[in-house]
Amino acid sequence: MKSNTIVKGILYVALGLLVIISFIPFYMMIVNATRSNAEILQQGFTLLPGTALMDNYETLIQYMNLWRGFANSLFVAVMVTVLSSYFSALTAFGFAVYKFKGKNVLFVFMLLLMMVPGQLGLIGFYDLIRVMGLLDTYIPLIIPPIAAPFVVFFLRQYLMTVMHPSLLEAARIDGAGEIRIFHQIGFPMMMPAVATMAIFTFIGSWNNYILPLVVLFSPEKYTLPVMMGALRGSQVAENLGSMYLGIAISVVPIMVAFLFLSKYIISSISAGAVKE
């Protein structure tokens, strides 16, 4: 029994080391965000914060309004999440409840295209958006996610397991229309699955880099990841402290949000993986 305690001790030390590895880049980032360029260059690594936080902030904000990027990203991600959740639920309901000609063909077709890598149509997508005159707008970021095959697939599978046709029949006898049935019975029934998928959709949109990079041009419309990319070549890059601060601003709020939502996010991932 005693050897077990020793083994456990060693294991906890190893886990602690892994925790440090997971966290130390963020710690370096936060510490360096409070130090001046000269301190970072001359004094190297330290665990103690410096005093240049406000100077760094001023330099940063002079060239790049990261809060604007935050608002932009939030706007896009919320729109994408809402639209994608609603229309995916609608589509899943259509596939799960009704029998119609070509249903299976369409469903399989959708699943097949789920396997296609997102970058395959990038050139054509860019050209289409250009011809439509929608470059440098949020529409190419917000509208296409309405068609999210994977979310539809997941919701349909979920609906098949939880839905009882008798429930719908009862509603119909009460005189409810199909649209109303979806909103009052179908959608609430799918809600747990919708919420799981909404988290992935939100994170995916929030972190998306290549698409906004290709379609957005005006810096005031940049989403956060594109703004981070632009930071590299900007005058902010002359000052390491400001660079670190800029990165920290893009990272820390997410970490704080995770603090509150971690349990929910992790159980969503678990649920998503097992269902698939």
Partner: peptide, 18 residues
């Protein structure tokens, strides 16, 4: 509007085209 020079031509060109 200031855009870093390495991205400047690729960012501006589509705007001017459209």
């Amino acid at each position: 509007t200031i855009i870093p020079i390495e991205d400047y031509p690729t960012r501006l060109r589509p705007v001017l085209e459209n």
